[in-house]
Design a protein around this nucleic acid. Structure first.
Lengths: 202, 202
DNA sequence: GTCTATAATCTGATAGAC
DNA sequence: GTCTATCAGATTATAGAC
């Protein structure tokens, strides 16, 4: 249940690496098979074709996100002992992030990469990343308002602005990850941006 | 000077369309040549290869951005007759946008698309889009503060948040452009977000 | 500057033996 | 489920006639 490590699993993992690094078009079935240590023809015993591997990756990602999602009870329990909205927010984000599978970041990069070219990736991005994050943020901000921890504000617009900000930060984070240079303290900057965003709502 | 329409120009224009629609890898030299109405081999009389076409597109984009840029004098003249920071901001954005070449949006999409795969596109995005927009926004916000039109705030952090927000909005704008469905009033939403962002700084 | 012809390579995918 | 062998087509790019 934790980590199968079957050939099918290994293929998917290799494909995640290669799709993220070279793009869906740029990574060939040969590349993927070579990395797994099998021949191309063997790969077709596990997946119908190249497109099917990408679909499998998307399904895997959806499961991972769904499993990491905090339940209503968990969220309430989380909020119980904390009176500082900024600390509460940051702790919540850190906890959620820690529950995401290892490959989540790389797969998000693939989705982001193919979003404009592949309809399934585009759908996934809109439905399971963008809108879901906005919906969740609306709920969380609403809770903070109800608890009197931040002032009233237009929830949807504020949530959109927050999610877009995070999205931009994630993007440059990925870019600095690729080039390594001038990475500086990008992770700290993300946290600072999140903190000052919530701070600005108090 | 205005629009050459030479074969070289036509090739670049066709390439912009195809790279934006199918990606750099997905659009073949054959595709580009066919759209122009010449044979592939003829294309190599104008560009050294496929990569050279993309480079030419980036150079074209850089020129367009540089030409559209408002000078210090233009910015001051713009600010002279307006006392409402929101109106001033929106008018400035609209004016700058109106000076951008026709292909700018499509080329930005290409850059965004290849950003993670191609180093030149990644460099262009960081240097000429992201950092430039942030630098400009810092200046503009600083001006507004100096004029007493908005309150003091951490300029860089605020500018980053603004640029990232716009970036996210541009992204979903592109997505809705592709799928057409549920486009709604995305352009209005962008303007609303810009307005409420500046409004929140007063 | 355009064309025809062609090279050399890579692509995703299949057939069939073991 | 793995392998060898192979296919049919697309890819970028070049050579050389006009």
């Amino acid at each position: 249940m934790t980590e199968e490590s079957s050939t099918k699993e290994l293929i998917r993992e290799a494909a995640v690496d290669l799709f993220a690094a070279k793009g869906f078009k740029g990574a060939s079935v040969r590349d993927i098979a070579r990395r797994v240590g099998i021949k191309e023809s063997s790969l077709y015993n596990h997946y119908k074709g190249k497109a099917a591997i990408l679909e499998s990756i998307l399904e895997y990602q959806l499961e991972g996100i769904n499993r990491a999602m905090l339940s209503r009870e968990e969220m309430d329990a989380f909020a119980a002992g904390e009176s500082d909205p900024v600390k509460l927010w940051l702790r919540g984000v850190a906890f959620y992030s820690s529950r995401l599978p290892r490959l989540t970041g790389k797969i998000n990069r693939i989705i982001h990469n193919e979003m404009y070219l592949d309809e399934k990736c585009r759908r996934f991005f809109v439905d399971h990343i963008l809108e879901r994050q906005i919906d969740l943020t609306v709920i969380l901000l609403g809770d903070l308002v109800d608890r009197g921890m931040i002032r009233e504000c237009p929830l949807v617009q504020t949530a959109e602005r927050y999610v877009f900000m995070l999205h931009g930060l994630a993007q440059i984070s990925t870019i600095y990850e690729i080039d390594l240079k001038r990475d500086g303290d990008i992770q700290n900057r993300i946290v600072e941006h999140m903190a000052s965003f919530i701070e600005g709502l108090t």
